[in-house]
Amino acid sequence: MVAGGGRTGAGAGAGAGCFPRRYPLPADEVREKNQDERQGGQFLDGMDLLKDVTENKRFLPTGVQGYPIWIIDALLGGGLRQGQLMEITGQSSSGKTQVCLCSAAHVAARHLGVVVYLDTSNSFSPRRIARMVDVFPISLVNEPKHVRLHRVMSSIICESVFDIFNLFEVLHQLELSLKKKVNNGSSKICLLIIDSISSLLAPIISGKYPQGRSMMLSVAMILKKLADEHNLSVLVTNHMVAGNGAPKPALGESWKTVPHVRLVVSRDRGSNICTATVLKHTLLASDRHCMKFAVPS
């Protein structure tokens, strides 16, 4: 259901049609971009980029069911784009973590690759993921339920991160292992989730000292570099803080430019229907359209 903005469902579909089509089937052989080609001062022309985008930049499904029937991926123009950074922001208990867990489950279930989940608030719940996987339609993947559960759960890797230095270390390790994986070609990481990045950054950001801000921007730089070089889709969550009047996303103006896509989720107290609004999108027309979805059960 498209509530705000002037777009109809058909409009959203047509909008997405202008852009490279989706490759939802994992069976599609995705040609690996030769990393060496791109390094060492080689430039790419527009046609190369277009080819790269159509062949390599898949949309990963969030799998979040809209309410009553829409799928939130349509709102995002296809889902989580590889090579891009998406941010979900929202009040406490508005469904941010649920979107993260659901995306992780769907990406892993569709054989798209390995998911790395960095958890800062002990809210990664394997039980919740198991329950989500359990209710997936069995036709999605043709295998017994317990085999599927084991496979899905094994391809989600979780690490707890409790301070910013730890985050730097983990991201560095991740980069090294990504580089290694390019060479030996085993199962590839395709989605990196950080839930939530703002709780790591909140203790160090202040008006007086510039170091915190510069650390925030170097995290942003590393994330974007990982996304670009290794064709990762990066999903981070952000908090809402009290602004003048209405709540606004945390981390301030300089973070605003970092994510490619910003999504705000909100939920009325006591109901399990969430509203998602696109604040910023690099592909779709920028009017703020929103959509309701149910917290996945």
Partner: peptide, 28 residues
């Protein structure tokens, strides 16, 4: 870095991390 280099397999993407399957059985 040397130690890390020696590790292998999908769960060794990050040293010290767990995959969700192990966490699930731990949680149960």
């Amino acid at each position: 870095a040397n130690k890390f280099k020696g590790a292998d397999g999908p769960s060794s993407v990050l040293k010290g991390s767990q995959n969700a399957w192990d966490m699930l059985s731990d949680e149960q």
